[in-house]
Design a protein around this nucleic acid. Structure first.
Lengths: 292, 292
DNA sequence: CTATCTGATAACTCATAGTTATTAATCATT
DNA sequence: AATGATTAATAACTATGAGTTATCAGATAG
């Protein structure tokens, strides 16, 4: 008699694939180790493929197991989303779009987009989460996000990308700094200052762009602090810990005690892009795309 | 105590959604009707949405149910394919690409492609199925096919399309016909003949193109027979039942008793395209795309 | 107003997921 | 080498809940 595969098998498989340890995986699942072992074995029988190599001390995934893990990750997220979506349709809300974004996108682009979509499709709901570039890509791959607002030069296979905003850069200095709109000519004027930048792992494109702005003007900036939040950077600048180079649009939306001096005569732009996966099956996303 | 959703629920849901009748669905599933009713109810509780409207004599899907059915169709096909693929990877075959095609594509394009891919990726298997344009699109939508070779002008949302071959058209006449390579100038010379064409539901683009070729030359063809197979069309021509207009490349690969006369001075081309869905998750397809 | 459909309810039983107890193999440590 | 501490697999048992049979209550048709 042959059994049928069930989502239970997938849940158990994922736990073992992540822990690579039957006892620990069983603990996490709140079941006993022999029970787990038997279910995994049954699963291998049903699928007709060996998924783990167990050599009595180590557990590792086979090539087939690696492939299956990636797909099951996707399948679970897709089922979760489908079920949630079904509930929303039942309640007449009709759809949810999961949006990830860099902090800097929430100032102008996102509110504008949400207002537009809400006007034409009032039944579409949004869930918003601030995330780094890297986390957004990972979440999109797992079907945990529908679109992301990122600053990236390249994007993996299977993704679509569209520029939504190109912004100039501004030098951010304390209010009492000697430089002002009239005497500011070039970033070379602060070549010896300490710089406070966004962390490179939060947005490596941003980091490299700032570096190239300075190098074009003939100096390498001394980076004293890094942060992932604009608010923090502004506070540090305000307290005289250094200067910063920030997309100009970020001067709105904060209660600031710093000066923004737009940097003239540079080719670099702060490019904000929307990204999404080609294989996204969220019907609500189709409606949103028109506004991008 | 709350239960967990399982694939069993999905199977049962699909049966009821298709039969729209609990007893018949239960029969099809080889279980009893009360058992099925209870599982569906449980499923509605877990999801938190009413999926069927039962008014004691009729069963119909709710809006949420309609959405869920579509997604579950997709999920099942995706799981089936994933499991099959996992088995193949386990056996070192490493992947299968499911190809649909119009009969006319098998003469040159497909064999050439398969030879190329097989040379570089000998572990990739193919499954080939001759299908109409329409069926290919439907199969691609359900994740039952990876790519299709079609003759279509447009393709639905979510598809990618690439031209792989543009062919001239030839007039096909019996061997003993008065026209030959030397005296054939224009299709207008057979304006009063009976025409045998591919069925318009097999390929409406082809059908319309043939019509426009004739109309450009000032006549409307008398269509006496339609067929979906080139072989049949050739047999009918051979037996004097009419003439045909066929992509020139189809003169190879058949044991013919008919003449192909390439039609000169017309702008129309027989365009063969490859189509696939953007959301295709088959890793082997990525490798194949390079050769298109 | 029966006869005959429908799906839902109630109480049962039985298959199998999950249990405990144990074994066999693999290391690490002395 | 011997011991102790790991690992996952095996064997026999238990109990949860899927699926059963029997029945009911509402809907429609003749």
């Amino acid at each position: 008699m042959s059994y049928q595969i069930e989502l239970r098998h997938f849940t158990y498989f994922l736990a073992v694939a992540e822990e690579l340890h039957f006892r620990k995986a069983a603990e996490r699942l709140f079941i006993s180790q022999p029970g787990l072992s038997r279910q995994i074995k049954q699963m291998e029988d049903i699928i007709g493929a060996r998924l783990f190599i167990r050599n009595k001390r180590n557990v590792e995934l086979t090539a087939a197991g690696v492939y299956l893990k990636k797909e099951i990750d996707y399948i679970f997220n897709h089922i979760d989303f489908t079920i949630k979506q079904t509930g929303l349709i039942d309640k007449g809300i009709e759809g949810e779009i999961r949006i990830g974004f860099l902090g800097s996108a929430i100032q102008s682009v996102i509110p504008k987009l949400l207002v537009q979509v809400d006007k034409e499709f009032p039944k579409i709901q949004f869930s918003l989460e601030e995330m780094s570039n890297y986390d957004q890509v990972a979440a999109l791959l797992k079907d945990q996000l529908d679109i992301g607002f990122v600053r990236l030069a390249r994007v993996p296979e299977g993704f679509r990308m569209k520029t939504v905003e190109t912004d100039t850069f501004s030098l951010v200095v304390p209010n009492d700094h000697v430089l002002n709109k009239d005497n500011f000519r070039s970033v070379a004027q602060v070549s010896s200052a300490h710089f406070i930048l966004f962390s490179s792992d939060y947005s490596s494109l941003y980091y490299n762009t700032i570096m190239s702005i300075c190098e074009d003007k003939g100096f390498t900036p001394i980076v004293s602090h890094k942060s992932v939040h604009a608010q923090t950077i502004f506070k540090l600048v305000e307290n005289g810990l250094g200067v910063a180079i920030i997309p100009t649009s970020l001067q709105h939306g904060f209660d600031l005690n710093v000066k923004f001096l737009e940097i003239p005569n540079i080719p670099q732009k702060a490019v904000l892009s929307v990204i999404w996966k080609e294989d996204n099956r969220n019907p609500a996303l189709e409606k949103l795309k028109k506004f991008l």
